[in-house]
């Protein structure tokens, strides 16, 4: 495993930790999109179907379990926890799941590395992850006061994507057969979705003002 991949996994993990910290200690999920969180739970469930069939390493298995457990518990907190759920901004989180899920499913049936159930689900998870941040970005745009933890959460998620691209470039040069168009194209699309957010995030940090996205 190269340094970019490890740093990518760590920022991904950090984003989850930041979000759990917000939910667990502040008991608030204000500014967080439940739609995005539900989509991530679907992404991990679809991708990690191989969890008990295909062993890569202890690291891999543990990380998969962490992402599965954290994504489902975040959804649980936002829907069921009696204090946290009251802070959920339902009125502004109006994105419809099927708008993203159905095209991704269709695309996975058409474009996959092998037409087997697990491979189609894997491709589906890659496509869905690429667009799952969409409801979150829409919600941020509608939120007047974006708190620091929410901004950091999205920032770490975006950093994870950038680092994964560096990881693929590194792997391409060190493992010449490592060509996976599905994850590369989807990954680049996913990273571009963050470009706008990154711009405003860095500007707000540089000018020391509160983060706000233009409507």
């Amino acid at each position: 495993m190269n340094v970019f991949r490890l740093a990518g996994d760590m920022t991904h993990l950090l984003s989850v930790v930041v979000l759990l910290l917000k939910i667990h200690t502040i008991k608030s999920c204000a500014g967080i999109s439940l739609k995005t969180q539900e989509l991530y739970a679907v992404v991990f469930a679809a991708r990690y179907l191989d969890l008990f069939v295909h062993f890569v390493s202890l690291y891999n298995t543990v990380m998969k379990l962490v992402f599965l457990a954290s994504s489902f518990s975040i959804v649980w907190y936002m829907k069921r926890h009696k204090i946290v759920r009251r802070t959920y901004d339902k009125d502004h989180d109006t994105f419809r799941h099927y708008v993203l899920v159905l095209p991704c499913l269709l695309l996975a049936l058409l474009i996959n590395e092998k037409f087997t159930f697990r491979e189609v689900m894997w491709a589906f998870s890659i496509y869905l992850e690429a667009v799952a941040i969409f409801p979150q970005l829409v919600l941020l745009q509608r939120t007047r006061n974006i708190d620091n933890l929410t901004g950091q959460y999205v920032f770490f998620l975006g950093a994870y994507r950038v680092l994964y691209i560096l990881n693929w470039i590194y792997r391409y040069f060190t493992e010449p057969h490592f060509v996976h168009w599905i994850s590369w194209v989807a990954g680049i699309v996913q990273t571009l979705l963050y470009a706008d957010f990154f711009y405003y995030y860095i500007m707000s940090w540089k000018n020391n003002v509160k983060l706000e996205l233009p409507a």
């Binding site: 991949r5 996994d9 991904h12 191989d50 295909h54 890569v56 390493s57 891999n60 990380m63 998969k64 992402f67 590395e113 894997w122 994964y164 990881n167 493992e175 490592f178 996976h180 599905i182 994850s183």
Partner: peptide, 10 residues
Amino acid sequence: DSEPESHDEL
């Protein structure tokens, strides 16, 4: 039947 190595990522 071996897995594609892209599946060693998370």
